[in-house]
Amino acid sequence: MRFPVFTFTQAFGFFLGLVFLTGASGHSWIDLLTVVGGTSSTAMTTINHQGFIRNYKGHIDATASYRLLDLNQPVCADFQQVVNQIGMPEYPQLNASAGDFVQGTYTENGHISLPASPTAKSGMTYWFGTTNPNGKATLKDILAWKDGNSSEGALLSTAPFDDGVCVEVNPSEISKERVAANGGVPPGPCKSTFKIPETVAPDSVYTVYWVWDFSGKLGNDAPDHVEWYTSCMDIKIIGKPSTNNVSSPNSQSAKVPKIKGREPKL
Results as ranks from 00 to 15, higher is better:
202 P>I: 10
82 V>F: 10
4 P>T: 13
200 V>P: 00
128 F>N: 01
98 A>H: 01
110 G>R: 04
93 Q>E: 12
226 V>K: 14
131 T>Y: 12
25 S>C: 11
93 Q>N: 15
136 K>H: 13
226 V>I: 15
61 D>V: 12
91 Y>C: 02
80 Q>L: 11
28 S>C: 04
103 Q>F: 00
130 T>R: 05
246 V>T: 11
169 V>K: 11
22 T>Y: 04
202 P>F: 08
31 D>L: 11
226 V>G: 13
128 F>C: 05
194 F>H: 02
179 V>S: 13
128 F>L: 06
207 T>H: 15
233 M>E: 03
160 P>Y: 09
190 C>P: 02
180 A>C: 14
244 N>L: 13
79 F>M: 09
97 S>R: 09
197 P>R: 03
241 P>K: 07
265 K>V: 06
70 D>G: 10
71 L>H: 06
257 P>H: 08
144 A>V: 07
133 P>S: 13
235 I>P: 00
22 T>W: 11
193 T>R: 01
31 D>R: 14
243 T>E: 08
23 G>K: 06
75 V>F: 06
162 D>T: 01
193 T>H: 00
238 I>A: 08
17 G>D: 08
47 I>P: 02
63 T>G: 02
253 S>G: 12
110 G>S: 14
235 I>M: 09
16 L>C: 09
74 P>C: 10
204 S>Q: 11
96 A>H: 03
190 C>F: 03
196 I>L: 02
217 K>F: 09
100 D>I: 01
133 P>D: 15
37 G>W: 00
42 T>I: 10
265 K>T: 09
77 A>C: 12
136 K>F: 14
232 C>K: 00
252 Q>F: 12
94 L>P: 00
250 N>Y: 15
1 M>G: 15
156 L>N: 01
84 N>M: 11
60 I>S: 14
156 L>Y: 01
175 S>M: 06
184 G>V: 14
35 V>T: 07
71 L>E: 02
254 A>D: 15
92 P>I: 02
259 I>W: 00
208 V>P: 02
40 S>C: 12
254 A>N: 12
52 F>Q: 03
236 K>S: 10
33 L>N: 00
127 W>Y: 14
198 E>W: 07
157 S>C: 05
2 R>V: 15
216 G>L: 12
91 Y>W: 05
211 V>N: 01
44 M>P: 06
56 Y>V: 05
217 K>A: 08
172 S>R: 07
44 M>K: 07
